[in-house]
């Protein structure tokens, strides 16, 4: 499985891996929103965590389709599925998710402080949002694996993946933004939503790969 993670990271960072596209999309969403809300700095800094979370969520959805699509097209997925007697398929999917998150999700977390400055957010709010994204975005990848596995054989499955998994990512979004606010606004709690967010990630880290493995085994093509 380590070999699979290393291979996928290599593929992700080399030319044509598409790792940069998510960051550019994230930047675009965050940069455009202030224009829509007008020149109210207080409003902007108050809704900053929500904007960052929506931007990161949409940017994560963007790359999910690639999770199995390319392996399916070049035949590697067949070999991976056939190796399920040596490496269980859920473990293979888990490895692919980890690599995918390291290449597409982690960079989003890393550029978050920079984008927070664009939104006139306080340092504490920026830190809290980056922390919740660090804990929460893996859940989006794990949920997305199931959607990507279902849609892998369909032409133009990209939009379908987003539509399938968006409802399941809403709890992640809610608790992520709630925890980000909880860290800076006094009466609001931080620990409880943050613990829920972490629990969601752990829960989907188990469920997502299993669901995806079932879908891939039943591809029938």
């Amino acid at each position: 499985m380590i070999a699979l993670i290393v291979r996928d990271i290599r593929l992700g960072v080399r030319a044509g891996g598409g790792a940069l596209i998510g960051i550019l999309f994230y930047l675009a969403v965050v940069a455009v929103t202030p224009f829509a809300f007008g020149p109210d700095l207080n409003l902007l800094s108050r809704i900053g965590p929500a904007i960052l979370w929506v931007g990161a969520l949409l940017a994560s959805l963007l790359g999910l389709e690639r999770l199995f699509r390319i392996d399916h097209e070049d035949g590697a997925l067949d070999v991976l599925v056939m190796s399920r007697f040596e490496t269980p398929l859920a473990l293979t999917v888990f490895g692919k998710c980890v690599a995918h998150w390291l290449v597409t999700g982690l960079p989003l977390v890393i550029v978050t402080p920079l984008l927070g400055l664009l939104l006139n957010m306080e340092i504490a709010a920026i830190g809290a949002t980056a922390l919740t994204l660090l804990v929460g975005t893996p859940a989006i990848t794990f949920i997305g694996a199931a959607g990507a596995a279902v849609a892998v054989a369909l032409p133009r499955g990209g939009l379908l993946v987003s539509v399938i998994i968006l409802p399941f990512t809403i709890p992640v979004l809610i608790f992520g933004v709630m925890a980000s606010y909880g860290a800076v606004e006094d009466p609001a709690p931080f620990v409880q939503p943050f613990a829920f967010l972490a629990a969601l990630t752990l829960f989907f880290a188990v469920l997502g790969p299993f669901a995806a493995a079932v879908a891939l085994k039943g591809l029938q093509d």
Binding site: L4, R14, D74, G75, A76, V79, L80, M82
Partner: peptide
């Protein structure tokens, strides 16, 4: 299983491709 497509990644070298499959299999 050797299918009609080659199950190799264009972005990796031949050695990286083969090393991966060798380690991944038993």
């Amino acid at each position: 299983f050797l299918g009609p497509v080659n199950a190799m990644k264009p972005a990796l070298t031949v050695r990286e491709n083969l090393d991966f499959w060798r380690i991944f299999g038993d």
